[in-house]
Nucleic acid binder design. Structure first.
Length: 197
DNA sequence: AGCACA
């Protein structure tokens, strides 16, 4: 089954950067599925975004490419289209809108993304020796630190670029290790004090 | 849900 997603970024350059970074990435090692990314047509002309935050809409309908362009409704699929427009406050300025011309804020403004990953839901006996070979296979790998204080271990994996961290997160999200006993590992971007204005 | 080292 295929899934189609629409991702909106703060500005156009950010979307281009994400496109180049993630296009063709093998996100499911099991099946070898790769990401196919292109610019959405309806957005290519937009110059201004309603909100400062990025958002993603996932359309769970399968991408049935069997010449059914005429049929407007797929039977049995109780999916409604909730496309775009998270907020209709085009005229209402949010109080934290302190940077109107933020066209150069292309950096890591996308939802707290950073080059360090926080890895949780590891097995009790998981350690650096087990994790490092897995993570170091991926490009841009910098360092790994496993913290085992008390309950379950958590790990921090740092990569050179945010895009590389993102690829690893997508590739390994939910995957299990030999030591896993509580299901697949849970990976997020690491929190840092210097994020979120 | 669980976020450390510099």
């Amino acid at each position: 089954m295929e899934v189609v997603a629409f991702a909106t970024f703060v500005n156009h350059p950010s979307a281009i950067a994400a496109l180049h970074a993630l296009n063709g990435v093998k996100f499911d090692p099991q099946t070898g599925s790769t990401l196919h990314i292109e610019l959405a047509r309806s957005n290519s002309r937009r110059k201004n975004k309603p909100g400062p935050e990025a958002y993603v809409v996932i359309d769970k309908r399968s991408k049935a490419r069997k010449d059914d362009q005429g049929s407007s409704d797929e039977g049995g699929d109780s999916e409604n289209e909730e496309q775009s427009e998270p907020d209709k406050n085009t005229s209402t300025k949010s109080d934290d809108d302190l940077d109107p011309d933020n066209t150069e804020r292309t950096e890591n403004t996308v939802d707290g993304a950073c080059s360090t990953l926080f890895i949780a839901n590891l097995g009790p006996k998981c350690n650096e020796a087990e994790l490092k070979p897995v993570l170091s296979k991926y490009p841009g790998f910098n360092s790994l630190r496993v913290r085992n204080r008390g309950a379950m271990p958590v790990a921090f994996a740092d990569f050179k670029e945010v895009e590389q961290a993102t690829e690893v997160m997508n590739a390994l999200q939910g995957s299990t290790l030999p030591s896993s006993d509580r299901g697949g590992m849970h990976i997020e971007y690491a929190r840092s004090k210097t994020r979120r204005r």
